[in-house]
């Protein structure tokens, strides 16, 4: 899930200069659940420990107003 989160985030920042673009937000948020399901369907495990920490840190930073 963390891996999917980072992939979606990467997709946003691929859109150079316009990460807040509504169209790309919509596409990204449609891709994210597809990625999660796709990654679960793959055999083996996707390493995601570090990404998990990142996912947790971002909302915490926002909530703390950092």
């Amino acid at each position: 899930m963390a891996f999917a989160y980072l992939c979606t985030l990467g997709l946003f920042f691929l859109v150079v200069g316009r990460p807040g673009n509504m169209l790309f937000q919509s596409i990204g948020l449609a891709v994210m659940p597809l990625l999660i399901v796709g990654l679960f369907a793959l055999p083996g495990r996707v390493p995601g420990g570090g990404a998990g920490l990142f996912v947790l840190a971002m909302p915490l930073m926002q909530a703390g107003g950092l």
């Binding site: 985030l9 946003f12 990460p19 807040g20 937000q25």
Partner: peptide
């Protein structure tokens, strides 16, 4: 989900 998308991605807010 799209309406509140920036909550999940505060860095693109």
């Amino acid at each position: 989900v799209v309406i509140h998308g920036p909550r999940l991605f505060p860095m693109i807010s």
